[in-house]
Write a protein that binds this DNA or RNA. Sequence first.
DNA 1: TCATTGTAAATTGTTGACAGTTTACAATAA
DNA 2: TTATTGTAAACTGTCAACAATTTACAATGA
Lengths: 231, 231
Amino acid sequence: MSSVPASDDKNVTDQLALRRSQSLTSIVQLEIERLILQGELAPDTRINELSLANQLGVSRGPVREACRTLQALGLIESKPNRGFFVRLLTTKEAIEAYNTRAAIIAYAGMTLAPVIEQPQLELLNHLLDKMDTVVSRGEVGTYDPINLEFHDSILRMAGNERLRQTYHDLLREQHLFRHRGLSDGDNLAVSNREHRLIVDSLASKDANAAFNSMRDHVLLGMQRMLNAGSQ
Amino acid sequence: MSSVPASDDKNVTDQLALRRSQSLTSIVQLEIERLILQGELAPDTRINELSLANQLGVSRGPVREACRTLQALGLIESKPNRGFFVRLLTTKEAIEAYNTRAAIIAYAGMTLAPVIEQPQLELLNHLLDKMDTVVSRGEVGTYDPINLEFHDSILRMAGNERLRQTYHDLLREQHLFRHRGLSDGDNLAVSNREHRLIVDSLASKDANAAFNSMRDHVLLGMQRMLNAGSQ
DNA sequence: TCATTGTAAATTGTTGACAGTTTACAATAA
DNA sequence: TTATTGTAAACTGTCAACAATTTACAATGA
């Protein structure tokens, strides 16, 4: 026991716990992931191990280990003797990811519908209202986080963490498609109308309707993305 | 151009291509994966980096990189400062994996049913017959590979490689549950009756029936596994 | 006997160095 | 000009060594 006050003691404990869980590799991994998802490392660019290591103040070991993890997650790919490259999703791969994501969340909706409870429906309705508000105010940037929370809430309520993880793995991967981040324009209002259909089907406790509304929402989102990309 | 015969030339080219695609890391990864899936490295055991490296005649670098990949694949987990451990699936996690797998392949069946063609149905029927044969002869060990090919064929026919990959990721992960590998006894005949129901639903081109038969098959397999484990 | 402390061995985390391959580019020839 | 060859620089693949942490275990005391 040290002589410092209890509050500081807890601080030290927390810092140690943090230190233990955060190896250099995991920090580097999160940083590369951030660079990729925020577009600072564009698809198809090579990841220079040495310069990245210097930039982060570490050696190449942790960088390479982090890259292996990100490779398995599908964010980067390894070309032997040539290095790691940020992955670029083809249109075919993007379509496949969308369909797989549709399979996942439609199943979640199907299992959730028969057992959903009133407070859960209220939470979803609350998120719907928030999205309507930001759409009507034209606050485009704030829609996405609420949208994300809406879908994640449904996955949480479905109660299958593995299903939820798979969904997020696919969502992360989809950032690697060219046409991501294009302005959605008026589509946000359309998207939220689909959200209402989803909540309606869940409220009616109709498994098939929930399955269809969730699947259709993802696939219609795919159509919007493909249309935006072809313009 | 070298002066060696063409046949040798091709050999050299192949070897170079092989050499290029097989970094030490990928070889080590496959070897650890084999050790785990064949039960030579049991769940919850620590992976000693140095001894494994010596055993394979490489240094710790490639071993650690391979472990990061396998960690991302969910086969091993990393405890900071304590090393890599073969993952052990809890019953809850196994159930979640089964349900996620059901979601995946049910969706594949649903999309395949309306568009399946006669030669594809014939291939599936051929596999059914082969499984019936080995079951009637009591050749337990040969059932599994055909069973695997049956499901994989359906996923291939569905035409979504990402869906197929996710399915196999989940299947691989399920080897980490305690009660795997218990003798299935008479259940193989039951399993193959379910296979016939699947092919029937596909042949009728009924998307909903295909979805249900595929989902039920995976979930009934889960029940069999849970029952076997509780005995 | 049992719990506690201290020390050595084992093991992981990280680094820097070297070998082999790829890439960039200047020199040469058609 | 364009294609080809040769050379140097840059970079990846791999290894061995050192630092930091954990583990094993003997020594000590209640």
